[in-house]
């Protein structure tokens, strides 16, 4: 422990309303903490800047997972273990079950929450690419009420989001509309478990005959934030998977993805590797569609 814990203040407001009032009274003073799998690591190595923490982990009203009007609604306090154990998720949103399964270690999954993973907003985060391709919307809550955004618009830049200092994530809503879609996800981490992504790609697609009728792609570690790969989607929508045009389609997809990829060199990998592997993963997905 490289921090002096006596310099930190952690409190657990009795009710969600009370917490929202505290956040509203002095926006920016408090950092909300749920499972703590990110913030406690920062504390351990002496790098936790915020000295005032408010725990929301005990708010059961934020820990739910239910079907509602053809959607799955997932409360922000839902843990990755909850997601992995849900029959609803396993049946309708297999990519989310998969991304939850490789988020951190089992111990992290027992405490870490979907809301935390979203607001921490790491470009390498495991679950945002899946939420992006599934067309999720995100509901934020504050003392002044709730607002719902398209999750596509939530991430603004490196660790920057639409979340205001007086807001918490309330829930994520995903349409149950992917029967008949082909679904793909692959994470290339530094190792097969307990790893941070070097690159990850999630995709869903609907084909009509040998044509791609609809395709959505989401990636981690490809830019400064989790992204939908709109250029690649555009290039591939309507493209042919027929044997004589597959190579051209692959090339078009790869080229478009290359245009929107802005990866970096860091301690885990290189930009060149990330770009190349992202294209290879896309090709792997497209080839599986052609089979």
């Amino acid at each position: 422990m490289r921090s002096d814990v006596t310099e930190y203040e952690l409190s657990a407001p009795a009710t969600l309303q009370e917490m929202l009032s505290l956040l509203a009274a002095e926006p920016g003073k408090y950092t909300p903490i749920a499972g703590g799998t990110e913030l406690m690591v920062a504390l351990g190595v002496g790098r936790l800047q915020s000295r005032s923490l408010l725990s929301l982990q005990h708010f059961q009203e934020l820990r739910f997972l239910r079907e509602e009007d053809g959607h799955v609604v997932i409360g922000a306090n839902t843990t990755f273990t909850d997601l992995r154990r849900s029959a609803l998720i396993a049946e309708h949103l297999p990519l989310l079950a998969q991304s939850a399964s490789w988020t951190g270690a089992i111990a992290n999954q027992n405490r870490g929450t979907l809301g935390g993973n979203i607001v921490n907003a790491s470009p390498a985060a495991d679950n945002p690419p899946v939420l992006l391709v599934y067309g999720a919307s995100i509901t934020l809550i504050s003392a002044s009420g709730m607002r719902t955004l398209d999750y596509n618009d939530f991430h603004l830049g490196y660790k920057k989001t639409q979340l205001r200092a007086d807001e918490l994530v309330h829930s994520v809503r995903i349409p149950l509309a992917y029967q008949g879609y082909r679904q793909y996800i692959r994470k290339v981490g530094t190792r097969n478990a307990l790893a941070i992504s070097k690159i990850a790609l999630a995709g869903i697609a609907r084909t009509e005959g040998t044509r791609i009728a609809e395709i959505r792609l989401g990636a981690a570690s490809l830019t400064d934030r989790p992204i939908r790969c709109l250029a690649a989607e555009k290039a591939l929508t309507g493209a042919s998977l027929a044997a004589d045009s597959l190579e051209a389609t692959l090339q078009a997809g790869r080229a478009a993805l290359a245009m929107e990829a802005k990866p970096i060199d860091d301690i885990r990998s290189t930009a060149r590797y990330r770009s190349a592997v992202a294209e290879n993963l896309l090709e792997e997905f497209l080839r599986s569609l052609a089979e």
Binding site: V45, T190, R191, N192, A193, L194, A195, I196, I267, R268
Partner: peptide, 27 residues
């Protein structure tokens, strides 16, 4: 195949288990 010490002017830059990659049972 996994364990690489990243040196920066003689200092080990990846002196944490997140970034010094030791294989797990899954590897």
């Amino acid at each position: 195949l996994y364990e690489k010490c990243v040196w920066k002017n003689g200092h080990m830059a990846n002196n944490q288990m997140t970034n010094y990659i030791m294989p797990t049972s899954a590897d």
